[in-house]
Design a protein around this nucleic acid. Structure first.
Lengths: 201, 201
DNA sequence: AATAAATTAGTACATTTGTTCTAAATTGAT
DNA sequence: ATCAATTTAGAACAAATGTACTAATTTATT
């Protein structure tokens, strides 16, 4: 592995563990290279965070592309999408745990996130429409409620890690599993009566 | 107003604006006192954050006590509770915007928050039970879904500010109003058919 | 008015951090 | 093998920060 990748790996681990106050010197020390060397690969410290953000976005967009390919979306599609999303989020958890601070320090990240949210909103409204047509979701839910559901899902999906960190502090597998179940339960009241009967929680 | 209170007011404003990286020197400069004077009133910088947290908790507990006093809980009770909660949260928004970092730096805050969550969970399960008995909420919702609803509500209630900061950046009145509506819409699918008809969103 | 207690200002110190700079070492190409 | 380019180490700098310390000033008490 080249130094640049090794730096990103070390930085990711340190940021996840110590938060974004972990410094270039800490990262360099953790992987036994000189501060000068680290600076050779990343002129600005924030470039390291930016590079990790880019990786997160890339990994995530693979999921979204795969989701778009699915012909018949069901609850299992959604569940597996969230499970995979949560695994990625956990991997890059420092970003979600310090999202506001990062967004303030790196405005590009904030802008990209805001843009992604708008696109994701449309996508999910489309998905919900399909689930209604498929008889999985209820028919008589007002548009404003769908909109609120989307927003609510995004907030939970992007900040469950923070909530977990402040309370249960579940780690790894356990965390992702628990909040995938949380997500499932959130969809329950929107299910059609016929479909709700099939579900075991 | 005595200096201690003035320090807290200045700190609150600076933290809300600049995040928790705002320093003692910044606070002192903003209110035209010497760093030495600030240190006289707060030996440790983190004591300022702790004092603000205590105020937040105190203001919030007034709401909870008032909620407990209410005899017949309806949706309007919940709505006004959330509206008041959100106003307080907005006032102390830096805490919610940097909750994980603060919890890591001040373990007492994390512990208090975790404890509050456990107590709040029981309270809300009780409230939901009353709403079911009152015919406002549906009867046939599984216990696990109620539990998930509680968790989901806490996540949205405590992190909507972060989500807002990263996207719409609504300020003051507008922010609190928008997310009070968000909260209302979240309850919609749990309403009994009879009650859902009454609601205008 | 005199004295003690409190508050405030201002300086100073040790530490940390992002960044720069220079020289050494390694690698690659010819 | 030689030379250039890349990579690395390590020192150095300026700025910022938490905290400590001292002296001045204000306030309260008798």
């Amino acid at each position: 592995m080249d130094t640049k990748s090794r730096i990103l790996a070390a930085a990711l681990e340190l940021y996840n563990e110590k938060g974004i106050d972990a410094t270039t010197r800490h990262i360099a020390a953790a992987m036994d290279i000189s501060p000068g060397n680290l600076h050779y690969h990343f002129k600005q410290t924030d470039d390291v965070i930016m590079a990790l953000w880019d990786r997160l976005v890339a990994e995530f967009s693979v999921l979204v592309i795969n989701l778009d390919k699915v012909k018949h979306i069901g609850l299992d599609t959604l569940r597996s999408f969230y499970r995979q999303s949560f695994d990625i989020e956990y991997k890059y958890r420092f970003i979600f745990l310090h999202f506001v601070a990062i967004g303030a320090r790196l405005p590009k990240i904030r802008e990209q996130y805001a843009g992604m949210m708008q696109r994701r909103e449309k996508e999910f409204k489309g998905i919900f429409k399909k689930l209604v047509q498929g008889g999985i979701f209820q028919k008589d839910v007002p548009p404003k409620v769908w909109k609120a559901l989307v927003r609510q899902i995004f907030i939970v999906a992007d900040f469950w890690l923070s909530s977990n960190e402040l309370t249960d502090q579940l780690r790894g597998e356990k965390a992702a599993t628990a909040f995938t179940r949380q997500m499932e339960a959130m969809f329950y009241p929107y299910l059609s009566a016929r479909h709700a009967a099939k579900i075991t929680l």
